[in-house]
Amino acid sequence: MVDIVDFANDLVQERIDKALAARAALKPVMPSNSSLFCDSCGGAIPEARRLALQGCTHCVTCQSFNELREARYAR
């Protein structure tokens, strides 16, 4: 026999599931595979970087340069 507590619990769980689905839909989609070579300079991206940062497309040097440039022009 279903009572009011079971009904309330099902209702709350349904709302939680909908909220989590909406939150997941807003997350940006990141590429899952990292590039072997940098998009900017064409140099090899070290394996440690590719494993640590999924979806990376730039080597450390080019990424640092891009971040500095973005910080300078963000003002």
Rank of each mutant, 00 (worst) to 15 (best):
36 L>M: 01
64 S>Q: 09
23 R>E: 13
33 N>V: 04
26 L>E: 15
7 F>Q: 03
61 T>G: 12
3 D>L: 07
22 A>M: 11
50 R>T: 07
4 I>W: 04
71 A>V: 01
66 N>C: 01
2 V>L: 12
46 P>R: 08
72 R>T: 07
11 L>M: 04
7 F>A: 00
1 M>R: 13
15 R>E: 09
55 G>I: 09
68 L>C: 04
38 C>G: 09
34 S>A: 14
39 D>L: 08
61 T>H: 10
27 K>I: 09
19 A>F: 10
53 L>T: 10
30 M>T: 05
35 S>W: 00
70 E>D: 14
40 S>Y: 02
13 Q>L: 14
10 D>G: 07
50 R>F: 01
60 V>D: 14
35 S>Y: 05
13 Q>Y: 00
3 D>A: 01
75 R>D: 08
2 V>R: 13
11 L>S: 00
66 N>W: 04
36 L>S: 04
30 M>V: 12
32 S>N: 08
16 I>P: 10
9 N>R: 14
61 T>S: 14
69 R>V: 06
18 K>E: 11
48 A>R: 14
46 P>A: 04
69 R>F: 04
1 M>Y: 09
16 I>K: 15
46 P>H: 07
54 Q>A: 15
10 D>H: 01
55 G>M: 11
16 I>D: 12
20 L>C: 06
53 L>A: 10
75 R>E: 13
67 E>V: 06
32 S>R: 13
73 Y>N: 09
40 S>N: 02
41 C>Q: 09
5 V>P: 00
22 A>Y: 04
69 R>E: 02
56 C>S: 12
69 R>G: 03
